[in-house]
Write a protein that binds this DNA or RNA. Structure first.
Lengths: 256, 256
DNA sequence: CGTTTGTTTGACGTTACTCAAATCTCGTGG
DNA sequence: CCACGAGATTTGAGTAACGTCAAACAAACG
């Protein structure tokens, strides 16, 4: 019996430790692979389409997949995104979410057979743990995103995104802490993700560049030149804006 | 052997079909119950605290639990909320999320022993399915929330929240479609959830009332008097605001 | 019943959206 | 491989929506 099908031997889901297929045994990987569909998607392409009915469980091998929504009046939103290693189970997902899935960068996904997936979930505890943790971390990431969207200031959102995105990805083997990293998001998509207009995002980046907090290099590369001030903007440690206080606190302050 | 421990016999997680404990057999319910901690929380109380280290998996029996975040400058956010039936696994959750969990209404939660929980997840497929679906639906709800937060107009957000909250809950046995329902959210919390100020929420409700789209009755009851217009505001079907158009579209329009 | 906390209303200010136009980038087809 | 053109980015100017501040009122809680 071959150790793994050819298509799996070149896939990150199989090759990277901690990813779903890396913990499957030969029999499992063969069974899963036999009914699955690895696919490459160009930026902007919708994920799934007619495939989605039969393959509602997908693994993200490489790239970024976003949940895009177009409001009836034409405004767009990116509510969340998934990254390499994520297992996304769309059974029971709102039609909105299913239909909105699209590649934000060039992407490789693998449509998994739900039957084979469920069998593995039931028989292989390691795989179950990985899938569970992936779903958990998707959920936590969206929670973080929600918390940021509610922030009022555009600059805070932009600084936060830069800081978070860096720690999510790596460059040249340096993991998540390098001053340099690639940010292949288009400004339009970033605007949709942060609930801003492209113009505002553009102005935000210019402002960060003028303040010498970041530098923008060719090929979507970013260099963080002043991490302290970036974090201050992102996480608000130096924000001088007044806190909203209770009447009681105000009374105390006035009395003193 | 008793069929179920006393504390479980009065718990929604055990009594309502589709909830986690309802599919456990006697042996499982006893094992889980022996190491778990059912607790009642008043509104505003933090969930967990010192308990969280040993019981990081919780079931929501009744009420609403929110993920609250206080930014360093004092502004608050509610990034997500959990409702009855949800199983929340906080292992691996960011400290932010763990510490921010608090009761938005009077709430009953059950701190589950992670060991017993994992055993059940591995041995009982029904329980596994319920927990998985719960986590999925939490994720989808937060995604919806994110999509709404990115909307620019305050009135759209408020109308959306009313429409969604109604369908999430029931009143007098009529499920999710009754004109009448209770909305025990305080306006401050709603403001934090929608990324608005309490004043703006207040003005929004007044506007809906003046337009005779809703009525506000005692005891936090809401009556929807004009569902069509509410949906129009919430989901944008009649929004007259101009869509952002591409240059190509504009050129076509000008030519005609 | 008194104190604290939440809600409502009004007046005002600021931020980020809107609109417009020039420039740049990237994907596509020749 | 290059050239073209659609789409993306950038910049500027004006404006509307929502946040901020303040103060009075109402509700909740012990």
């Amino acid at each position: 019996m071959p150790s793994a099908p050819r298509q799996c031997k070149i896939c990150a889901l199989y090759n990277r430790t901690g990813f779903f297929c890396s913990v499957l045994n030969d029999e499992e990987i063969n069974r899963l692979s036999a009914h699955s569909r690895p696919t490459t998607l160009k930026r902007g392409r919708q994920v799934g389409m007619n495939l989605m009915d039969n393959w509602p469980v997908i693994g993200i091998c490489e790239g970024i997949v976003g949940v895009r929504r177009i409001h009836p009046d034409g405004r767009g939103t990116i509510a969340a995104f998934f990254v390499d290693g994520d297992i996304v189970d769309l059974r029971g997902a709102p039609e909105n979410v299913r239909a909105g899935l699209s590649a934000l960068t060039e992407t490789k996904v693998c449509y998994l057979s739900p039957g084979a997936f469920d069998e593995i979930m039931s028989s292989n505890p390691d795989a179950r743990t990985i899938a569970w943790k992936s779903l958990q971390s998707q959920s936590f990431r969206v929670i973080e995103h929600s918390a940021e969207l509610a922030k009022k200031q555009a600059m805070e959102k932009i600084a936060w995104f830069i800081a978070e995105f860096r720690s999510l990805h790596q460059f040249d083997g340096v993991n998540g802490q390098s001053r340099f990293f690639r940010m292949p998001f288009r400004h339009v998509d970033l605007a949709d993700y942060l609930g801003l207009q492209p113009e505002t995002v553009s102005r935000g980046f210019r402002s960060l560049r003028d303040k010498e907090i970041i530098r923008m290099l060719p090929d979507s590369m970013i260099e963080i030149t002043d991490q302290d001030r970036l974090f201050a903007m992102a996480y608000g440690t130096t924000t001088s804006g007044p806190a909203r206080q209770t009447d009681a606190e105000i009374r105390v302050l006035r009395a003193s």
